[in-house]
Design a protein around this nucleic acid. Structure first.
Length: 318
DNA sequence: AAGACGAAAGTGGTTGA
DNA sequence: TCAACAACTTTCGTCTT
């Protein structure tokens, strides 16, 4: 629109089709880091979860950019043949277009036959094609970042190589791989969230998860309260100092070994509750309980325990 | 009226025999 | 396979702000 005489480019903004339903303006900014389209006039978030069409790598200097940029699709574990398969052409012509001699033709024919056999007729390979497309579907449904998908794909490959998929549904092992990849990358995704995007029951996926952990020597960190803090505090619109305080509380609690065997959601919630009171950025137990997916009672119990063990004094009239 | 508190009974998962 | 167990949930009455 550029009513003010500046071009769209000058503003560093990208125009998007349509007008804002709030103010009628048609200028929007794209924020790839947060995945949002925002109206420049009134700040209305028009859409979330936009697709990042940029490269999957980052570069800070021209040299880095040059060395990372490449032609063709990226090699990736999430495609069954890693996107690297060589295809043998079906035409009996050489590179310059001349017809092949009969002996070469016979050789090519044999190569082609074995090529196809080895590619499509390996049961592992067919398994992988099915699994990788399912993984693609499930992980994009869950909004899983690309590097986590790669980890997940590599977990699946390991599991398949150990012959552990046999007798289990591919889908359940895929779901388990994604869940474990999230744990490894410390992205808080609970098993229930993964389960809800599949047609499987929780038990099956849980079994697969445990099987993979015990049979492949993956180092999977336990879900920790600390990792939940960013997600919860942004849901609660807490201020930076409160978040920092909560992180400190959790660190201390860990040193005193009172976090073991407890639901991380409860610990994180209680830490945020205490931090909120201390920093005068208070949220009710119910609000916190809702976002941390535990009940008020659990928040209460954890918070009483934290206060008692860490010797924190709560001033109720602050 | 909303928030916080705590007791009591019930639930799903783990552990060890 | 079963019982014991800890953590957590649900429910509810009471107190506090």
């Amino acid at each position: 629109m550029a009513k003010d005489g500046l071009s769209v480019k000058d503003l560093g903004r990208t125009r998007r089709k349509g007008v804002c339903i709030n103010c009628g303006q048609s200028l929007f900014t794209k924020d790839y880091a947060r995945g949002e389209h925002t109206c420049t006039e009134c700040g209305l978030v028009v859409s979330e979860r936009i697709t990042d069409r940029g490269p999957e790598w980052r570069a800070f200097t021209a040299d880095e950019r040059n060395s990372r940029a490449r032609t063709g699709a990226p090699a990736t574990l999430t495609i069954a043949d890693k996107g690297l398969a060589t295809m043998i052409d079906w035409r009996n012509r050489d590179a310059s277009g001349k017809a092949l001699t009969s002996s070469t033709r016979a050789a090519i024919y044999r190569m082609r036959k074995w090529h196809i056999r080895s590619r499509l007729h390996s049961s592992d390979h067919r398994n992988l094609s099915v699994a990788m497309s399912e993984m693609e579907r499930l992980s994009s449904q869950l909004g899983i970042p690309r590097d986590v998908r790669e980890t997940s794909a590599s977990i699946y490959r390991k599991t398949l190589a150990k012959k552990l998929v046999r007798g289990r549904s591919i889908e359940s092992v895929v779901a388990a791989s994604i869940y474990l990849a999230c744990r490894i990358h410390r992205i808080p995704r609970r098993l229930d969230e993964v389960v809800s995007e599949t047609n499987l029951d929780r038990k099956k996926i849980g079994q697969s998860v445990r099987l993979i952990v015990t049979q492949t020597n993956l180092n999977v960190p336990l879900p920790s309260a600390k990792d939940l803090i960013p997600r919860l505090s942004s849901d609660l619109f807490l201020e930076g100092r409160t978040v920092k305080k909560a992180t400190e509380i959790i660190k201390e609690a860990k040193e005193r070994y009172i976090t073991m065997g407890k639901d991380p959601g409860g610990i994180a919630g209680a830490a945020l509750y205490i931090a909120g009171i201390l920093e005068d950025d208070r949220r009710t137990q119910r609000e916190i309980a809702n976002v941390s997916r535990v009940t008020e009672v659990t928040i209460r119990n954890r918070y009483k325990e934290l206060v008692r063990v860490l010797g924190i004094t709560i001033n109720p009239n602050s």
